[in-house]
Simulated assay, not measured.
Amino acid sequence: MAAAYALLLAALLALASSPTMARDPGALQDLCVADNTSNVFVNGFVCKDPKLVKAEDFFFSGLDEPRDTTNKVGSNVTLLNVNRIPGLNTLGISMARVDYAPFGLNPPHIHPRATEIQTVLEGSLYVGFVTSNPDNRLVTKVLRKGDVFVFPQGLIHFQFNYGTSKAVALSGLSSQNPGVITIANSVFGSKPAISDDILAKAFQVDKKIIDRIQAHF
């Protein structure tokens, strides 16, 4: 009997640590529209009273409109997550439009809570992701209109418009709130700043170079 209990406990622990469990909570009802006015803090959002749900909770307009890409990196991400479409709450999906200026870059970043699948609507992109330690293998592809590429959850990835005309892509993400960590912003623009001694040792460069980079953020 003790052996059976031990086996059951091991199985439960294996399930708890399984990647299939590390996803957004599954819906237990037809609708759980996010109530953004609630003061209750939970892992996600409290459900609005179903009697108060309206079509606008599931709606967004204007994703076809070009975005401003006149910034330092030459790209603009329009993320439609649960904060903009409350009806996405508990559904485990979101999407984004990404606009790229000529030679525009969506800088290396990760989505801590989502895998991303992207298709090019206009132009062409050089995209890639890097596998985790110790291999750190770079996997890249040139995408053209209609091509699709997948960026696995939690891996550093990027998209670069190497062309002389604008590019547009549409992404689907496997979380209602995928999150984004832009590597350069996080490392060099943290508040308060990470010590230049630490960053100099990590990047194996002089502290003056670190100071110069941090000044940009």
Results as ranks from 00 to 15, higher is better:
residue 37 T to L: 09
residue 76 N to V: 06
residue 200 A to E: 02
residue 178 P to N: 02
residue 163 G to H: 05
residue 63 L to K: 06
residue 213 I to M: 09
residue 153 Q to T: 06
residue 198 I to F: 04
residue 23 R to G: 10
residue 129 F to K: 07
residue 32 C to V: 06
residue 84 R to P: 04
residue 106 N to E: 04
residue 42 V to T: 12
residue 10 A to W: 05
residue 133 N to A: 15
residue 171 S to N: 07
residue 1 M to L: 12
residue 168 V to D: 02
residue 1 M to P: 08
residue 104 G to R: 02
residue 29 Q to A: 10
residue 144 R to G: 14
residue 166 K to V: 10
residue 188 F to M: 04
residue 143 L to I: 11
residue 31 L to M: 09
residue 94 S to K: 01
residue 37 T to E: 09
residue 178 P to L: 00
residue 42 V to R: 11
residue 101 A to H: 02
residue 3 A to E: 14
residue 210 I to H: 12
residue 175 S to K: 00
residue 155 L to G: 04
residue 15 L to I: 08
residue 23 R to T: 12
residue 88 L to I: 10
residue 57 D to K: 01
residue 86 P to M: 02
residue 37 T to C: 03
residue 27 A to I: 10
residue 165 S to T: 15
residue 146 G to R: 10
residue 121 L to R: 08
residue 204 Q to W: 07
residue 178 P to F: 00
residue 116 E to G: 03
residue 127 V to Q: 03
residue 12 L to K: 13
residue 100 Y to I: 08
residue 122 E to N: 15
residue 188 F to E: 06
residue 23 R to M: 14
residue 95 M to I: 07
residue 48 K to D: 03
residue 214 Q to K: 09
residue 50 P to T: 06
residue 146 G to A: 13
residue 76 N to G: 05
residue 118 Q to D: 15
residue 154 G to D: 05
residue 154 G to C: 12
residue 195 S to I: 13
residue 37 T to Q: 07
residue 86 P to D: 05
residue 21 M to H: 12
residue 213 I to K: 06
residue 36 N to V: 12
residue 39 N to P: 00
residue 211 D to H: 14
residue 44 G to I: 02
residue 117 I to K: 12
residue 183 I to S: 15
residue 11 A to S: 14
residue 33 V to C: 02
residue 15 L to Y: 13
residue 23 R to Y: 11
residue 124 S to Q: 13
residue 86 P to N: 09
residue 72 K to H: 10
residue 46 V to F: 05
residue 121 L to I: 12
residue 165 S to C: 11
residue 100 Y to S: 02
residue 187 V to P: 07
residue 6 A to D: 13
residue 56 E to S: 14
residue 183 I to G: 13
residue 72 K to L: 08
residue 147 D to K: 00
residue 156 I to P: 14
residue 118 Q to E: 15
residue 75 S to N: 07
residue 72 K to R: 14
residue 9 L to F: 13
residue 96 A to F: 08
residue 12 L to P: 08
residue 161 N to R: 03
residue 39 N to F: 01
residue 85 I to H: 00
residue 202 A to V: 13
residue 77 V to A: 06
residue 55 A to S: 12
residue 72 K to V: 07
residue 195 S to Y: 06
residue 96 A to N: 04
residue 28 L to S: 15
residue 71 N to P: 06
residue 88 L to W: 03
residue 94 S to D: 00
residue 27 A to S: 10
residue 160 F to Q: 03
residue 206 D to E: 15
residue 129 F to W: 11
residue 110 I to M: 09
residue 203 F to N: 11
residue 209 I to K: 11
residue 61 S to P: 01
residue 34 A to R: 01
residue 88 L to G: 03
residue 197 D to L: 01
residue 103 F to K: 11
residue 4 A to I: 05
residue 106 N to D: 08
residue 210 I to P: 08
residue 39 N to C: 00
